[in-house]
């Protein structure tokens, strides 16, 4: 029962090749992030003399499912919920944990890339891995939730950075015209988020110091089209592009389609129900409103299939 914990070298070996087909950002991220960046550092541990019952109590208090056995940084093993269940069944719950802890353990090292940890979780089906440093001292523990949380935070940072870099690159690429392209999914009846895309468009254009009148027309078109997707379609995508003297907004959905397009574009006509009207929408001015603020307006639709609306506002030779 005194075997030293080992790192799974074979698993580490094929970690390198395991991420083909992933977006480059993600591959780069899980290589760049180290285990120490995602692990939990505040550990609840016990000494070897603690009983299995002590461990069970600690698990209950801290709501954790694995407790490392450690003395002054030296790591001896891990007690998991399975070990506790076996102790209860076997009648040795009051025995010292050093006799019943798991010692044949796979551990991670703190400077391994995150990709190794992911591979370990895939391969070994453990809920958590203890993390040791170079001096074989226990420095943390990693469970899948830690990884998910860290990845989400990092991905958000990364996406922000990429978005800004794209915008800056576009600015540099052309001093006389602005290139922006975004695609935003819009879900049916998602009133909580409807309008966010248009708010964002307005903000971007304000940052680029477009004339307020133009911003307003572009934002109004985007907002109405976004609300339309939310109210009338089964869900779709709002995309917008600013380039070559034009701001173009396209709302594309996969259904249910419009029977009489001409009727739908008239002022005051609507198929919205009372519930949607109570939210302040569906007054039947949406498409007419888009038409009013656009220099070009085009709608194609077929009952039973999707609808695509394209609105263009001419922005002329704007510089940023």
């Amino acid at each position: 029962m005194s075997e030293a914990p080992q790192t799974g070298a074979s698993a580490a070996g094929d970690a390198e090749a395991a991420h083909e087909g992933e977006p480059l950002v993600l591959t780069e991220l899980i290589q760049r992030l180290k285990v120490r960046d995602v692990m939990t550092r505040e550990l609840s541990t016990v000494s070897r003399a603690a009983t299995m019952r002590d461990v069970q109590e600690l698990m209950r208090q801290k709501k954790i499912s694995g407790v490392p056995v450690e003395e002054n940084g030296r790591f001896f093993g891990l007690v998991s919920i399975d070990d506790i269940i076996r102790a209860l069944g076997g009648g040795y719950i009051d025995a010292p944990c050093s006799r019943h802890m798991t010692t044949k353990l796979v551990v991670l090292e703190d400077d391994m890339p995150l990709s190794f940890a992911l591979r370990y979780f895939d391969r070994y089906h453990y809920g958590r891995f203890p993390v040791l440093n170079r001096d074989r001292r226990l420095v943390g523990i990693v469970c899948q939730r830690d990884i998910n949380r860290a990845l989400l935070v990092e991905l958000a940072h990364e996406l922000n950075r990429l978005e800004n870099a794209t915008l800056q690159a576009a600015d540099k690429a052309s001093a006389r015209s602005v290139h922006v392209l975004r695609e935003i999914p819009v879900c049916r009846y998602d009133f909580e988020n409807a309008g966010k895309a248009a708010n964002q468009i307005k903000r971007v254009l304000q940052e680029r110091q477009f004339p307020p009148k133009l911003i307003r027309r572009i934002a109004v078109a985007a907002y109405e089209l976004e609300i339309n997707l939310c109210v009338h379609s089964d869900g779709g995508v709002l995309s917008w592009r600013v380039s070559n003297g034009r701001a173009e907004i396209i709302a594309r959905d996969a259904g249910p389609g419009i029977e009489d397009v001409e009727w739908a574009c008239r002022d005051g006509t609507s198929t919205a129900n009372e519930w949607i009207r109570s939210l302040g929408f569906g007054a039947g001015m949406g498409l007419a409103n888009v038409k009013r603020v656009s220099d070009e307006f085009e709608i194609t639709s077929q009952k039973g299939s999707g609808t695509t609306v394209r609105a263009v506002v001419n922005i002329g030779e704007l510089t940023v």
Binding site: E192, A198, N199, K202, P212, A219, G280, F281, M285, N289
Partner: peptide
Amino acid sequence: MSDVLLVDEDDLLLLTSLASDQVLRTAQI
């Protein structure tokens, strides 16, 4: 809100009995 979007004036004050996030989004637009 479609009605509000029709207005072409600047620096407007919006009075509404609708209490939803959309009111604010429209106001920003």
